[in-house]
Design a protein around this nucleic acid. Structure first.
Length: 631
RNA sequence: GCCCUUGUAGCUCAGUCGGUAGAGCACAUCCAUGGUAAGGAUGGGGUCAUCGGUUCAAAUCCGAUCGAGGGCUCCA
C-alpha cells in the first residue's frame, strides 16, 4: 500500500495541469513537511483556488505582493549590499528571499517593520515601466539573482519593472496603485527561515522573511488569532499535556511511543475499525514486518523506492528489509493458492506497521514519522467487479470519516500520466469507476488530469477539521504494476488465467498521523466514545470516597472508563484537573447524592450541572457512546 | 539532507559581566474535610543534551556531535 499522498515516485516528474497546480503544490509540499500543505485550502472550501479568485482575492494579492516590495526596500536600506531574489504573495501573506551579509534576528524584523511603516507613510505611487532586456540587465547589473531571472525570461515575454519610493524591482505585477493603499496596522512580519534559491538544494541558501498582510487590522487580528488557535491545538503540545504519546531522540527519532491514554484511544479506533471491516465484507490479515530482498526486487521497491527504506539486515547470508509497505505480503498470501473468479473479490485488510526512512528535517510530531501503522487493505477483483468494489470502498471511506466527526469531505481524482504501466483500456475502466463512484456519492471533486501515479489512477479524500484546515486522509489507488510483477492470476469462467485488478486503499492513512489529526480536530477534547477516561468521579470530601467508588464500580460494570479522584485536593481543584484533562463527564458526589443514590453530572466545558440517578446516567452515557456524540 | 533558531528538574521557563543552579506546576509527607475551575505548610528532585577546547574557574565563551523547532521555487 502506498501511503496517502506519498507515492514512491517523484511527484515533480508528474505533468502539472494548470487547473490543478495548487493541488499538486499541496501534494508536493505535504510530502516535505507534514501539515503545512494541508492549510492550502483553508479559506476556499470545496474548491481549488483559481476558480474562487474574486476581486477580494485579487486585491489582497496585490496588497501582499506590494508589501513584499516594501519589505525588500526596507531590507536593502538596512543592508545595501543585499542581493534580492523573489518576493511573491502567498496564501495569507507574502515573503521575500535575500542573500544577506549576516543572519537576521527577531530584532531585525522589528527594525524592518518600523522601516516599512515609514516607507508606507510616504505614500509614493507604484509605477510600472516596460523596458528592454538590455535596459533590464543594466539596471540590475548588481543583482545576480535578478540577472538570472532576466536571462531565463522567454524572448517573447514583456519585461516590466515596478518602482515605489525609489526602490525598483523586476516584477510582473500587479500592484496596488500607491503605498496609500497599504494599511500600517494590518501587516506583520512573522518569521525568518532558510530557503534555497529556486528551491534547489544545490543552489545557495537564502534568508526568507515571511509576513502576513490584510486589508484591515481586524482581518490581521483574525488571522493572528487563527495562528494562535493552531498553536493551542498542536498535537505535539496536547500529546504532552494530556499524556498521550511521546517520541524519544535517544531511542530513535520519528518513532512513536503510545502512552496508556493514547493507546486507549488507539484501541478504540482499532476496535471500531476492525468491527466495521468485518461488517463490510473484509477479512483481516497479519503479515511479517521484514522480508527478504527477493520480495522487494520483485515488487520493484528496491529499484524505485530504496531511498525510502531502512537499510538491509543481513542474516544467513540473505538481506532482509523492514517493510515500507504491506502490499507484497498480501500478494504472497494471494499467490499461495490458485484462485477462481468465483472466489473474488478478496478484500483483505491489515493494520500493518511499516518503516520508512524520512529525512530528519521532514520529521514532524505524529504527522511525519519513520514507523507507522497503515490502515491498509487490498482488493483483488475481476474487471467486472471493479465498479461495485470502488463504489463500496468510497462509501465505506466516507462512513468511517464521518464516524470520526469529519463532515466536510472533498475528493481529488488523479488520472493517467504520460508515463504509465498497464493497458489504456484498464486505465479507462479504472478511471471511469472512480469517477462514477464520486458522482454516486455526490462529492465535490477536482480532477487532476495526468496527476496519477505511474501504476494507476486514484482518489484522495481530504477532510476539513474544526478550524477549517484540510487534511488528506483516505486514498484509493489502482495498481497495474504489482499484479504484473508478481504475475498474479485468477482462473476465469472460460478456464483462462487472467490478471486480477488490484486496489490499494487506506481510509485513515496511518494511525499515527490520523491520531495527530484527531487531536488537532478535537483540540484534545475527544468525543466520549474515544476519550481515554470517560468519567471522573469527584467526591466532595473524603467521606464520600466510598460512595464514589461504588458508583465507579457500577459504571465499570457497564463498560465505562472511569476514574475516582480520591486525592486530598479540594473539590474545586479536582474539577479543574478533570477539566484540564478534558474528561467528558465529571460526576460530583456528596451528601445529597449519596442519600439519593444519584450523581451531579457536570459536562466538560459547561458550568451547568444536572442531577441523575446512577442508572439513568449509565444509560445516558451509553447512548452518547453508541451515537458517537461529543459529550 | 541543507539553512537558521534552539536544548537548564517530569512539564513550562528564569539564570546579569564566566565565580560549580532557581521559580511555578507536577510529585511526596503533614494539616485542612471542602458543594461546581487552583486551601495551606514542609520536603525530595538537575553530570545545565553529549563530547572536546579556552580559563584559576564554564549552564554561560569556542568547536564538534546528537535531538527539537521554523523553513527549503505557490514562478521576475
Amino acid at each position: 500500500m502506498y501511503e496517502s499522498g506519498k507515492e514512491p515516485l517523484c511527484v515533480s516528474s508528474l505533468p502539472v495541469s494548470l487547473s490543478s497546480a495548487s493541488f499538486l503544490h499541496a501534494a508536493k509540499h505535504g510530502r516535505r513537511k507534514g501539515i503545512r500543505a494541508f492549510f492550502v485550502f483553508r479559506y476556499v472550501p470545496s474548491c481549488t483556488g483559481r476558480r474562487l479568485m474574486n476581486t477580494v482575492d485579487e486585491k489582497l494579492h496585490a496588497i501582499r505582493h506590494s508589501m513584499a516590495h516594501v519589505m525588500a526596500e526596507a531590507v536593502l536600506k538596512k543592508f545595501p549590499d543585499a542581493h534580492i531574489a523573489i518576493g511573491p504573495a502567498i496564501q495569507d501573506g507574502f515573503y521575500y528571499d535575500f542573500d544577506l551579509p549576516r543572519n537576521l534576528t527577531p530584532d531585525d524584523l522589528e527594525d524592518i517593520t518600523e522601516s516599512m511603516k515609514e516607507i508606507i507613510k510616504r505614500g509614493s505611487a507604484f509605477e510600472k515601466r516596460v523596458i528592454s532586456r538590455q535596459e533590464a540587465k543594466e539596471l540590475f547589473k548588481d543583482q545576480k539573482f535578478k540577472l538570472e531571472l532576466i536571462d531565463e525570461l522567454p524572448e517573447t515575454e514583456e519585461i516590466s519593472i515596478y518602482s515605489q519610493d525609489g526602490f525598483t524591482d523586476l516584477c510582473r505585477g500587479p500592484h496596488v496603485e500607491s503605498l496609500n493603499k497599504l494599511n500600517l496596522q494590518s501587516f506583520k512580519l512573522l518569521s525568518v527561515a532558510g530557503a534555497y534559491w529556486r528551491g534547489d538544494e544545490k543552489r545557495p541558501m537564502l534568508q526568507r522573511i515571511y509576513g502576513t498582510a490584510w486589508t484591515n487590522p481586524k482581518d490581521l487580528r483574525l488571522h493572528l488569532d487563527h495562528l494562535a488557535e493552531m498553536e493551542k491545538r498542536d498535537h505535539r503540545r496536547l500529546g504532552k499535556e494530556l499524556d498521550l504519546f511521546s517520541l524519544h531522540e535517544e531511542a530513535g527519532p520519528g518513532l512513536v511511543y503510545w502512552h496508556p491514554k493514547g493507546a486507549r484511544i488507539r484501541h478504540e479506533i482499532e476496535k471500531f475499525w476492525k468491527e466495521e471491516h468485518f461488517a463490510n465484507g473484509y477479512e483481516l490479515l497479519n503479515t511479517p514486518h521484514v522480508g527478504k530482498s527477493w520480495l522487494w526486487e520483485t515488487s520493484g521497491h528496491l529499484d524505485f523506492y530504496a531511498d525510502g527504506m531502512y537499510p538491509e539486515m543481513v542474516m544467513d547470508k540473505a538481506n532482509y528489509y523492514a517493510k515500507p509497505m504491506n502490499c507484497p505480503f498480501h500478494i504472497m498470501i494471494y499467490k499461495n493458492a490458485k484462485h477462481s473468479y468465483r472466489e473474488l473479490p478478496f478484500r483483505w485488510a491489515e493494520l500493518g506497521t511499516v518503516y520508512r526512512y524520512e529525512k530528519s528535517g521532514t520529521l514532524h510530531g505524529l504527522m511525519r514519522v519513520r514507523g507507522f501503522t497503515q490502515d491498509d487493505a487490498h482488493i483483488f477483483c475481476t474487471p467486472g467487479q471493479v465498479e461495485d468494489e470502488i463504489l463500496e470502498v468510497l462509501r465505506f471511506s466516507l462512513y468511517m470519516l464521518t464516524s470520526f466527526g469529519f463532515k466536510d469531505i472533498q475528493a481529488y481524482l488523479s488520472t493517467r500520466p504520460e508515463k504509465a504501466v498497464g493497458e489504456p483500456a484498464q486505465w479507462k475502466l479504472a478511471e471511469a469507476s472512480l469517477k462514477k463512484a464520486i458522482e454516486a456519492e455526490g462529492l465535490d471533486y477536482d480532477i487532476d488530469e495526468g496527476g496519477g501515479a505511474f501504476y494507476g489512477p486514484k482518489i484522495d479524500l481530504k477532510v476539513k477539521d474544526a478550524i477549517g484546515r484540510s487534511w488528506q486522509l483516505s486514498t484509493i489507488q489502482f495498481d497495474f504494476n504489482e499484479p504484473e510483477r508478481f504475475d498474479m492470476t485468477f482462473v476465469d469462467s472460460d478456464g483462462k488465467e487472467k490478471r486480477p485488478y488490484m486496489v490499494h486503499r487506506a481510509l485513515l492513512g496511518s494511525l499515527e498521523r490520523f491520531f495527530g489529526v484527531l487531536i488537532e480536530h478535537y483540540a484534545g477534547a475527544f468525543p466520549v466514545w474515544l476519550a481515554p477516561v470517560q468519567v471522573a468521579m469527584i467526591p466532595v470530601a473524603e467521606n464520600f470516597n466510598a460512595y464514589a467508588k461504588d458508583v465507579a464500580g457500577a459504571l465499570k460494570k457497564a463498560g465505562i472508563r472511569v476514574l475516582v479522584d480520591d486525592s486530598d485536593d479540594r473539590m474545586n481543584a479536582k474539577i479543574r484537573n478533570a477539566q484540564n484533562d478534558k474528561i467528558p463527564y465529571m460526576l460530583i458526589c456528596g451528601e445529597r447524592e449519596q442519600s439519593a443514590a444519584s450523581v451531579s453530572v457536570r459536562r466538560r466545558f459547561e458550568k451547568e450541572n444536572e442531577t441523575m440517578n446512577v442508572d439513568a446516567f449509565v444509560s445516558f452515557i451509553k447512548g452518547k457512546i453508541e451515537r458517537k456524540e461529543l459529550v
